[in-house]
Design a protein around this nucleic acid. Sequence first.
DNA 1: TTCTTGTCACCTAGGTGTTAATAT
DNA 2: ATATTAACACCTAGGTGACAAGAA
Lengths: 221, 221
Amino acid sequence: EARLEMKSLWGEFNDLGTEMIVTKAGRRMFPTFQVKVFGLDAESDYILMMDFVPVDDKRYRYAFHTSSWSVAGKADAAMPPRIHRHPDSPAKGGHWMKQIVSFDKLKLTNNLLDDNGHIILNSMHRFQPRFHVILVDNSADSDKRAEENFKTFVFEETKFTAVTAYQNHRITQLKIQSNPFAKGFRDCDQDECAMDVLGSYSSSSSTIPSSARPRSHHRPS
Amino acid sequence: EARLEMKSLWGEFNDLGTEMIVTKAGRRMFPTFQVKVFGLDAESDYILMMDFVPVDDKRYRYAFHTSSWSVAGKADAAMPPRIHRHPDSPAKGGHWMKQIVSFDKLKLTNNLLDDNGHIILNSMHRFQPRFHVILVDNSADSDKRAEENFKTFVFEETKFTAVTAYQNHRITQLKIQSNPFAKGFRDCDQDECAMDVLGSYSSSSSTIPSSARPRSHHRPS
DNA sequence: TTCTTGTCACCTAGGTGTTAATAT
DNA sequence: ATATTAACACCTAGGTGACAAGAA
């Protein structure tokens, strides 16, 4: 009834230990959480939303010399829980099913006082995104069906560690290789410039040959 | 119950004879059609939409030597009529009233075969934008109230001539001065660079002094 | 002639990781 | 030491009128 998009990309990140940046102003997730939904009633209204639950009660630390995460103690005080409602909500089942549902407006922050409605997360803690589909039921006895009208989907491969700066260098490289907005940091020395991981997430059609494009601030010589 | 935003800017354009570009791919309007709505029921659903009706049955021509429009004959065959539904529709009255409703996604085209849902208009013809507010009424006898549930607003100062290229140079200059996206064509020779007409439509905060900014392709020497 | 089309430099708007400085 | 912040160059994505070439 809900299928995660970009599943193989999520899998690549998850194998390395996904990290998501949190900033004061709010940072989007990459990969973006996107799903295809099925089996809704085309004519009924649904609200689609996401939230994030702690994977455990621990705080983590990254050891650069061993390139690995380890437990650094008990979790810090939980952040005020927030829910991200997909901006199209409420909308008919037909609307949700006719195309991929993308949560690309969702942003993560570490700012306790955030008033932009972003998701607040503790840095150096692990989280599991959850996806909820709620049927809007205005009938008198709707409370009787509260259970069946509320469905939650969890995709294990989307769990991640919130960070203020990337820890695992291989995560950084995979982000650079697969996120179109990080194209400026790519190594394009080999011919034809490295394509996006797994084919084409960006519809890039740069006319400029990679050899002609100068690079400056990255890759210290 | 509906107030046109940027009324004075619309007035300036209208005094000169507003022109709107139509292209094959679709072109936004400038000024953007924006309204503030009042008096809706906060809890009811409404659909907001726009359409465009011919001002008359004439085709026009612009005489550059006299800087004036004249009738060039009877109107060409009418374009297939289209309606632009505001993308937030349907939404509660509370949603529509809490902020300015902006039709900035609306695009005008002269392509008869357009399949992007854009508004199709005949170039060199005059049009009057209309704004409609429809109450979503699911009751059994809703047809009895069809009249009162459907309200149309017309703002005379938003009428315009569709063109494929600007005719009146003063329209071009006013567009350049007031549209943030045309900033590259502004004359900024006098000190502090000309501000946007009527104050601040763009929240521009260019740090670069105008004198240091080169201009190349426009203003042939 | 008159009107339309496609390409272009120049913008707005905002999403990237980097880096140096700062905080804890 | 470790973690966070803010400024920055470099991107994507797309909205401007100018201009030259083409069409009617």
